[in-house]
């Protein structure tokens, strides 16, 4: 088990190094120069050179990359080009809205998706199952910015229930500002949750211990919640962890649409300004979240299913 963990952690580190290299290369390949963007069109070549030198952009690329890695490893992340602030404090200011949006969106997807998946599994290949499949496919096919706009149109502009955009701190404020984008985000995640969970619930329902539980006279809800769900949930948790990257992508778009001051808007600004260190750090950190979540679902699997725990002693 320890050996296995060590290997998983090792491969995670390599994945993150690769990601750092990739994001570094990509942002440097994108046309546009951060210094010119910063100084505007009228800056003289001397000025540009001076600022470039101050920002360390005249160093060889390999040195710049190593400097970036050094910052990542020490955890102070360095300075942003455009915001006269440390990247660390910048991120911590913008973290909450984004994290809340992802959690809220996942919650919405689970609240709608779990019942739909269970109903679909219990009534598989009946009309209601087909209806659910059509609904989730449509919700998956809608781009998040579009479903976000439609939701805002209906619930904010027409019905006036929720704010059109913007972000108010405080619990009530957060819930009100994030409800619409969270629904849009949740809808985009719905299909994959329903599909995965429905098929694993169906599989578990066909297993003999479910029949044995029925033979014992247990009620359907008891069998579903105490026996089936526990055994069916793991593939869905894995799929959720894999899809966190997809969710982070969704927040970038939705934060723009709803003008939420989170990491998504920060990344958007950083890319526009060619704020190299900020873009790179955001990319690597969100990658780290995805990698860590995948690692922890692997470990969770061992907790939920004792057969996965290696080296279990025979009694």
């Amino acid at each position: 088990m320890l050996n296995y963990l060590a290997r998983r952690v090792g491969s995670s580190v390599i994945q993150l190094l690769g990601l750092a290299l990739l994001s570094f290369t990509l942002i440097h390949l994108v046309p546009g120069n951060p210094v010119r963007t910063m100084l505007g069109g009228r800056a003289s070549p001397q000025q540009v050179h001076q600022v470039s030198e101050a920002l360390g952009l005249t160093r060889p690329l390999i040195n710049q990359f190593l400097g970036f890695l050094g910052h990542l490893l020490t955890g102070n992340f360095g300075q942003s080009f455009t915001f006269s602030q440390g990247i660390g404090s910048l991120i911590s200011q913008r973290l909450l809205p984004s994290v809340m949006l992802i959690l809220f969106g996942t919650l919405v997807a689970l609240l709608i998706g779990v019942p739909l998946a269970v109903v679909g599994a219990l009534r598989s290949d009946r009309p209601i199952d087909h209806g659910i499949r059509i609904f989730t496919t449509v919700s998956f096919a809608m781009p998040t910015f579009w479903s976000g706009l439609v939701l805002a149109l209906i619930f904010a502009l027409k019905l006036n229930w929720l704010p059109v955009s913007g972000y108010t701190p405080g619990f009530v404020g957060i819930v009100r500002s994030l409800t619409l984008p969270a629904i849009a985000l949740g809808l985009s995640l719905l299909a994959v949750i329903v599909r995965t969970l429905r098929s694993s619930v169906r599989h578990v329902l066909s297993l003999e211990y479910v029949e044995a539980a029925q033979a014992r006279g247990f009620s359907t809800p008891r069998i579903l919640f105490k026996h089936v769900m526990r055994n069916a949930i793991m593939p869905t948790a894995t799929v959720l962890a894999v899809n966190v990257g997809f969710l982070i992508g969704g927040t970038v778009v939705l934060e723009q649409v709803f003008q939420i001051p989170g990491l998504g808007t920060l990344l958007f600004q950083a890319v526009q300004q060619r704020d190299y260190p900020l873009v790179e750090t955001l990319a690597v950190l969100s990658g780290a979240v995805v990698v860590l979540l995948n690692l922890s679902t692997d470990i969770m699997q061992g907790i939920v299913d004792p057969r996965v725990r290696l080296g279990g002693k025979s009694v």
């Binding site: 003999e208 211990y209 044995a212 029925q214 033979a215 014992r216 006279g217 526990r230 055994n231 004792p306």
Partner: peptide, 22 residues
Amino acid sequence: RAHRAHNVGMIFQDPFSCLDPT
């Protein structure tokens, strides 16, 4: 359900697949 619970006990051929593995 009461009949299954109280009147009849059932054991099957494969004792492994009849127990919840978790």
